[in-house]
Design a protein around this nucleic acid. Structure first.
Lengths: 162, 162
DNA sequence: CGTGAAAAGAACCTGAC
DNA sequence: GTCAGGTTCTTTTCACG
């Protein structure tokens, strides 16, 4: 994981369909070298996939909400997380510190559907209460800005071997 | 935006590097047709881009937090949002209903850096208070599950023409 | 809209340094 | 690790249904 790998990663985060030739031009390497490096980054679990980003509003998902999930005293976090994963409306799920066990991001077509989804969430075994924050505007989301590119070097923690 | 487009979108969300030939096989169309459809979906703003997903821990961003931003009475939301956008640690930014004006997702290498970033957030003009929820585990994030594929048809709201 | 054909380019493998 | 070359597949354009 050197400077070149980080440059490749940054570019692929920006443009996930960049060709190896294109990446090679950017980092000053041949397409085959880039091909091999990217393959290693994928194998090492650094790059976990490539995905098209879709404007949710254009596919009928105009309502977004952040929902905190308070567990019952006897709840198993794993079971609750599994149940949350069952709902396709739940796009992201974070286990968090604090009163709540999870914060999830939910996307639905309408506030009507949001109400139904919240009902479904509350009915999950192990869920005591939910606290919903309705998203009014998405200023930006999942920016590829901070890829550790601008980090001093390595701070000692959390590396995966290459 | 017919059933075929939705199938293409779903597949590109799953695999952003799928070839047109591959997509054609899935939807039962020629590569050129798929090529044209994808071009239209991009032009219409349905597909907004393609991005590599990177495991944040492998690039030195092991700490994630959700931060609610309470504005001062006299704050301009736009100015605060602009200031938030300046910080590369802020990956996502949502304007929300409730006590807080924004909820942002922050990624940093360490809790030390989190402290610094929170300081920077509080020093933004128009920010009165922050409320931080530390993410302990990311169960899943940005799942391509709900692309409106499973929606009955169209519920009337929020469409962009094709 | 859809297609199939054809040129250009990329992916991907191999061999060599 | 990196590269160049060669085969295969994809992209991209275009004339045509």
């Amino acid at each position: 994981m050197d400077r070149l790998d980080r440059k490749i990663i940054a570019e692929l985060r920006r443009n996930g369909r960049a060709t190896y030739a294109e990446l090679g031009r950017i980092v000053g390497l041949s397409a085959s070298s880039v091909h091999e490096r990217v393959g290693k980054l994928e194998a090492a679990g650094v790059i976990t996939g490539y995905h098209a980003m879709v404007d949710p509003r254009t596919v009928g998902l105009g309502v977004t909400a952040l929902v905190g999930i308070q567990p019952t005293d006897t709840a198993s976090d794993e079971d609750v997380a599994d149940a949350l994963a069952e709902l396709p409306e739940v796009e992201s799920c974070y286990g968090v510190a604090g009163e709540e066990a999870f914060v999830v991001k939910v996307r639905v077509p309408t506030v009507d559907e949001l109400e139904h989804t919240l009902g479904r969430l509350r009915r999950i075994d192990g869920v005591a209460r939910t606290h919903t924050t309705v998203v009014l505007s998405t200023r930006f989301e999942g920016r590829p800005n901070n890829t550790g590119l601008d980090l001093p070097e390595d701070t000692g923690r959390g590396g995966v071997a290459s």
